[in-house]
Amino acid sequence: MTETKQIKYYLIKFQSVIALMLMCIVLSFMTDRFLTGENAWNVMRQISVNVVISVGMTLVILTGGIDLSVGSILAISGAVTAGMLKFGAEMPGLNIFLGFTLVGALVGGTLVGTFLGWFNGLTITKFKVPPFVATLAMLTIARGLTMLWTGGFPITGLGDNFAFIGTGWFLGIPMPVWISAVVVLAAVVLTKKTVLGRYIYAIGGNEKAAELSGLKIKKVKMIVYAIAGALSAIGGIIVTSRLDSAQPNAGFGFELDSIAAVVIGGTSLSGGKGTIMGTVQGALIIGILNNGLVLLNVSPFWQQVIKGLVILLAVVIEKLNSKEE
């Protein structure tokens, strides 16, 4: 009895890892191209943007919120970075022209994303707009700003140095994978080791109790949304660099893949429960699923159906497990 219980416990604890392994085994048998080094790096590179965004999404969801604006913030940040790099900033009235170095442009783009995320936090905390609505509004605002900034046309030809961020390799590992690894590592430390991380869990776990314990709820939430904005911007930079082009419709629908990764990774949408590594596994599951379905020549329409079913399955399993407890 206790032995079966223990087996069950481990099955539940490592369910995502088990699901991942099963997927890999099945795909290895069904296609020749899955289990190759090239394909592995491909998958890793493809999911790195989702991982970066989903780390921010995890923090937001841990506080009991949601961020629908990540895709749009990604687009505007990427576009601003590209624009600054290529055209600089011109202020016709003052007859001033500012050119930007690569670093300047990267910082500028990231600041734009951070600011918009912070603005989300502001409307949510100061004006008590529900996160769903506040970030839904930002989803359109930031998309509109992207269109305005780019005039609806891609900004291309950004130079080799910039392209290195999205396409280069360092010590045998693609740059986007390095970036996402650093982001994940920092977020793991943040959530597990810092006071801010503890506050994030506490607020999501029981906001009333957190407030009565003297936690500065508004400040923490603003920081979290700002982090989510900053990470969306980093995602935007990677996407722009990889394509050597800032597309006006970049990041369209990314919020869905991101929320899916968080949910599959076992983070509770009501907040207070979940881990960064869970989200990484969730992103891996989605990435491998996407990759496998393409390799298996499944039609894109069926791919969407299957992805949706996997999300449902993950959450249903999660619910059944927590009920059993």
Binding site: R198, Y201, N206, S213, G272
Partner: peptide
């Protein structure tokens, strides 16, 4: 409702304030 973060352990609840 007002006192505890229910899914945290004793030590984490003790140190919260």
């Amino acid at each position: 409702l007002q006192g505890l973060i229910l899914n945290m352990d004793v030590a984490k609840n003790t140190s919260l304030a």
